[in-house]
Each structure stands twice: as C-alpha cells, then as structure tokens.
Simulated scan of single mutants.
Amino acid sequence: MSGAVSGFLTAVDDFERAIRSGVSADMEVADQRMRTAYQGATPAELTQAGKPLVAILNEVPPLARGQLAVLIGACVESGADPVACAPRVLANLAKNLAAAATFAKEWAEIMEEDLPDPEEDVEVPFTALFEVFDPFDVIAWWTQPDWERSALAMLQRPEVRRRLGPIRALLQERHDAFAEVSGRWNKCLDYVLRVLDDEPLIVLHRETGTGYRMRMSGMGDNFQLHTLLAHELIGSGFVAGEAPSAEAVAACRDADGMVPTFGSFNLVSPEGNWIWNEGTPSDIPVIDGARLLVLDPEPYRRHWPAGRFFPYMPGDLVFERALSAEEAAAWFSHVKPADATGATENPA
C-alpha cells in the first residue's frame, strides 16, 4: 500500500499478506490485530484502506467475510471510494441473500422450532448445523446482517446507484424472496433499492387545477418528499398554506438531524389511492414517462420529524417550471375526480 503508513494501515498490510499466505493461524492473528488497530484509525486512514480490503474480500474465508465487508462499509462512510468498493460487496450480498433464503426454507422444512436470530448466538454448536445444512447456507444466514450493513454504506451514494444496472433488480428480487421465506424484511435495504435519482415528477394541485414539473433525487421516503414539496409550492407562493421551516427543508436535503414539521397536503395517485408518507416515491405511478402525483387537502393535521431516512444520502427536489393551463389539463385527464376515486386511507 502506498502513502503514509499508520498502525491501522500496517495492520491492513499484515492482514492482506496473511490472507494470501493461506495459513489460518496467521489470518486469525492478523485479523485481530487489524480490528484492534481499527479502534484508533483516523478517517484518512480508513479512506486509504478501502481499496486494498475490498481487493482481498473474496479470498477471506466465508465465515469472516461479512465482518470484513462491514469494515469496508465503515471505510466508505469515512471517505473511501464507494464506486471501487461497491461491486464486490453487492455481488456478495446477492449471493448471500440467495443462500440465506435457502437455509430459511430448509430450516422450516426440517426443524421443529423457529428460525434462529442471526444477530444472536446459536444455541446448537454452530458447526453441528453443517451436518444438516449446506455450510455456506448456514454461514450466509448468520452473516446476512453484516452484508446488509455494508451494502447500505454503498447504496446511499448516488454515484453507486447510477452504476447499479441489472444488479438492482436482482438484489430487490432476492431481498423479497429472502423476506418471504424468513420473515425478516430489511426496511432499509428495501427502501434504498427503491431510491430514484433524477426522476421526472409531475405534481398536480387539485384545488387550483395547476400543475408543476419537478425532478427528484435521493428521497428515502415520502415524509422527505412531502416536506420538500411544501417548500417548493407553498414557500414559493404557487399555492396557499404554511410552508415548512428552513431548518426542516435543510434537514431533508443535506443538513444533520431531524426537525419537527407538519403536513400540507394529502398525496394521492391519479386513481385516488393515498400515497403513504411511510412509503417511498417509487409508490407514485408512472404515466407517460413521469411519476404523476396529485395533491389534495389534508384530511387532518399531521406532524413528523423532518429529515433524511438515510443519513448519508442527500436528497433534492428540483422545481423545473409551472405547467401551462393546457399542459395541466392534459395531465389532469389521467386523474379521477376527487368524489369518484374510492380512495384508501393513509394512517400517516
């Protein structure tokens, strides 16, 4: 590894050599030394360590691989290149999800007890399960939380999401299959896989008959979107109402923390179904190449802490322009009248 060498970086070099030597005892000693040194590592050191660690990720024994992935995720959170680190981590996550789902399915068929919690110690001797289940499937089950944590560090970066390609759909499919057979739905992983970037959004305000073209990126949930919509439309004087505070808006974009705020609209689909604040912008249907969202009056007052569902993921809603009356009318032609929607209630 080039550049200045610290205690942590030296430990990373030693770990890399131990892995490539193939001697288990050396690997264990070097791994422990690296994890001890990590406690005192600086962000600059973690930034340098990301690439060499991900380069040896697939050479590490499967039982220790997930923990190394968590360390790589920590390096990314401190400044390591997420584009360089993500492909190998996400490929392993896809493989691990499939194997963990197989373990969960076979456990339900063979065992007469609930699935063990992968974040707790197993009561039966761990290796005893290798006699009943495929060893990799067993390891995948217990390391699944590690792969999810590491992947979240990568997927919160727009530069990674822009390069996902087909693996996004594969990860979503495998996450859904894993959740179905195991009962372990990872909300964070599910939501981050649904994040939209540079996504066209048409917003129709039913009371005034007006429409607006916007573009959204990095929205973790619809609470975040709702707050920024109110800022763009009410704060700029396009529609009447009370705009959220500047602090709430900043928290939804890139400022730290959460700020109390309130609802301004009822978000609904063109069919009249409520778009839940707890959901994601991917719930908004696509019509003629754009997400089409209708804003109705609030049925009752709502409050929530404004901010970002994903702390490392900046969000943005860009106001492009108000639609002409003719354009708005054309978009409204896709929308059912308010009294004919049969809307379903949103508990938020």
Results as ranks from 00 to 15, higher is better:
7 G>Q: 07
10 T>M: 13
10 T>F: 13
19 I>S: 09
27 M>L: 11
30 A>C: 08
30 A>M: 06
31 D>K: 09
39 Q>T: 13
47 T>R: 15
49 A>Q: 10
51 K>V: 15
53 L>N: 06
57 L>H: 12
65 R>S: 08
66 G>M: 08
66 G>D: 06
67 Q>D: 13
69 A>S: 15
71 L>V: 15
71 L>N: 08
80 A>T: 01
84 A>W: 04
90 L>V: 04
90 L>F: 05
91 A>P: 00
101 A>G: 15
106 E>M: 14
118 P>K: 09
119 E>A: 13
119 E>Y: 01
123 E>Q: 07
127 T>K: 15
127 T>E: 15
131 E>C: 01
134 D>H: 09
143 T>A: 11
163 R>N: 12
172 Q>K: 10
175 H>T: 06
179 A>S: 14
182 S>M: 01
186 N>L: 00
198 D>H: 10
198 D>G: 13
200 P>A: 05
204 L>R: 01
211 G>E: 05
213 R>W: 04
220 G>Y: 08
222 N>M: 07
222 N>V: 03
229 L>Q: 02
231 H>V: 00
235 G>A: 08
236 S>P: 00
238 F>A: 05
248 A>S: 14
250 A>Q: 07
260 P>A: 11
277 N>I: 00
279 G>M: 05
280 T>P: 02
291 R>A: 11
302 R>H: 09
309 F>G: 05
310 F>N: 06
313 M>F: 07
316 D>L: 10
317 L>D: 06
320 E>C: 01
322 A>Y: 01
324 S>N: 03
326 E>W: 05
327 E>V: 09
328 A>V: 05
331 W>M: 04
332 F>R: 02
336 K>W: 03
339 D>I: 00
341 T>Y: 03
